[in-house]
């Protein structure tokens, strides 16, 4: 159990060292990401500039929703943001070598990159969270605190699972072995397949729909002690860690199935 983390940590360490070498550019990157992600929150503020409440939610409560989903999303992006380029990697034929190594392919793909600059977005989410919690009068209990703490990692896992499943579509972009293009050394955008366009959309889909459901909605309801405006069972408030687990397992299985297809239909 410790060992896989060990390899990943080495990767992260190497990436950090490498990216910190260009310190100025890195700081600019992170700051840029930080500022840009504020735009999303500004949209929330603009809406509340016009109304005191959205449904039964006021601005601070929505800020909490936003913060939890934003931090989770940013952490996922940090760890597996590079999955966006995965379809191209498969098309270039750079996935095959992973099958010649004595490790699981999903694990190797995750360990192939790490985007330190997304820290900016996570930091922004953190600030909004502080703002939200400071402005809200939460009736803190151990349960509520625990759920809030768990909500972020659980959210990260949920996002990651959906993202991985989305990336699996890359295994269907090749039509069959050497009989379609695979050798575009350096990659040419003009030969790009639809999956890439699709995966960009998938990210936004994740950020809103999935986030709204399990990552932040239910835990927030519990933390805030709100009755659910949608009238769904209260048990769902605790669903996120379980959903995270189920999602991770499902993603792993789907990935394995996708690789199996790839290995028989034509690498």
């Amino acid at each position: 159990m410790v060992e896989p983390v060990f390899l990943w940590r080495r990767l992260v360490g190497a990436q950090i060292r490498s990216q910190l070498q260009y310190r100025a550019s890195f700081v600019l990157d992170v700051t840029g990401a930080f500022l840009i992600s504020f735009i999303d929150f500004v949209a929330v503020l603009v809406i509340f500039h016009n109304v005191p409440q959205l449904g039964t939610w006021n601005v601070h409560e929505v800020a909490l929703l936003y913060a939890v989903s934003s931090i989770s999303f940013a952490l996922t992006d940090l760890a597996i943001g590079h999955l966006d380029q995965f379809p191209q990697k498969v098309r270039d034929g750079n996935f095959d070598i992973l099958l010649v190594r004595p490790r699981g392919t999903l694990y190797q793909v995750i360990c192939s990159d790490f985007a330190l600059r997304r820290l900016g977005k996570a930091a922004q989410g953190g600030l909004v969270l502080v703002y939200a919690l400071a402005s809200l009068h939460v009736d803190w209990t151990v349960g509520r605190a625990a759920l809030l703490v768990v909500a972020v990692p659980a959210g990260t896992v949920i996002f990651a699972s959906v993202w991985v499943v989305g990336a699996c579509l890359a295994f269907w972009t090749t039509d069959g072995g050497e009989f379609t293009n695979a050798f575009t050394y350096g990659g040419t955008f003009l030969a790009q397949y639809p999956i890439d366009i699709y995966s960009a959309w998938l990210r936004r889909f994740l950020a809103y729909v999935v986030a709204l459901a399990f990552v932040c909605y239910f835990p927030s309801l519990y933390v805030l002690g709100k009755p659910d405006p949608l009238g769904l069972p209260r048990l769902l408030d605790f669903a996120s860690p379980l959903v995270a687990l189920a999602a991770a397992l499902a993603a792993g299985m789907i990935w394995r199935g996708a690789v199996r297809h790839y290995r028989s239909a034509g690498g």
């Binding site: 990767l11 990216q19 750079n94 010649v100 050798f183």
Partner: peptide
């Protein structure tokens, strides 16, 4: 076994 595909990349692109 070991494999090397001359026109493909197995090294980590951004790292030393």
């Amino acid at each position: 076994i070991g494999a090397m595909f001359g026109q493909r990349i197995q090294l980590w692109w951004d790292l030393p």
